[in-house]
């Protein structure tokens, strides 16, 4: 589902953020990408959605070679790759329903599909009662659920989560992890960047550890790690 071959990414000023990463993620896997800040986690995530172009190496996502994927095809790639962020990225002027519906409307889904799928997905993430609330009326955990609903409403093949629990307290984080686990069980590949030890240790899933842009550990059913 995701395959990278010796990927390198240099930012301006000769900072090497990613330094020769080769990674293979199968369909339906749940992978943690761990490591300290600046180890290249976020850059990896951006490379997978072609938000950034690699300096070298090859990247395949959902069967597409990103290097040869024309710019106008990138939106169609992103429809297959849902994204969740630490800061939720919800629109404050839209209700919960509208925020999720927005994600479908702007990719041209007909109204009937929007009307059917949005309540369904909000039910799934446990917000079936809060369709008409505005983001600021919700707790952080609930806002992240809306964000996940928006990323997943289109049933993408892959869900990328960049520090999704970074702004949440441990108890709320557990709820979010349950939700991501549930999504993973529907067959969706989940890649989650985090530096939350407790979560990684409790899930016992594959762990890829980065340091200075390199993979220093790739372990199935792993824990966050001893050293850090």
């Amino acid at each position: 589902m995701i395959k990278t071959l010796d990927v390198v990414k240099d930012y301006k000023g000769a900072v090497r953020a990613v330094d020769g990463i080769t990674l293979d993620v199968e369909k339906g896997e749940f992978v943690f990408i761990v490591g300290p800040s600046g180890s290249g986690k976020s850059t990896m995530m951006k490379l997978l959605t072609k938000e950034e172009e690699p300096t070298g190496g090859e990247i395949y996502v959902a069967g597409k070679n990103l290097a040869t994927l024309p710019r106008w095809r990138v939106p169609y790639l992103r429809r297959n790759v849902g994204c969740v962020f630490q800061d939720f990225k919800l629109l404050p002027s839209k209700t919960v329903f509208e925020n999720v519906a927005f994600g479908l409307e702007v990719i041209g889904r007909p109204r009937s599909v929007v009307q059917r799928q949005v309540p369904q997905i909000l039910e799934l993430v446990g917000l079936g009662e809060k369709l008409d609330r505005f983001p600021e009326e919700l707790s952080g955990g609930e806002q992240q659920r809306v964000s996940i609903a928006r990323a997943f409403v289109n049933r993408p093949l892959i869900l990328l989560a960049d520090e999704p629990t970074g702004n949440l307290d441990p108890a709320t984080s557990v709820g979010i992890m349950r939700l991501l686990d549930r999504i993973n069980r529907t067959g969706t590949t989940v890649v989650m960047a985090t530096h939350d030890h407790a979560i990684v240790d409790s899930m016992r899933r594959r762990v890829v550890e980065l340091e200075d842009g390199k993979i220093v550990r790739d372990q199935s059913r792993g824990i966050y790690g001893v050293g850090s």
């Binding site: 710019r71 106008w72 939106p75 992103r78 429809r79 927005f102 702007v106 990719i107 928006r150 289109n154």
Partner: peptide, 17 residues
């Protein structure tokens, strides 16, 4: 800009934006 960012994120085409 926020809306545009999200539109790009969820895969709205350039022309749609």
């Amino acid at each position: 800009r926020e809306e545009i960012g999200i539109m790009k994120l969820v895969g709205a085409t350039n022309w749609f934006i």
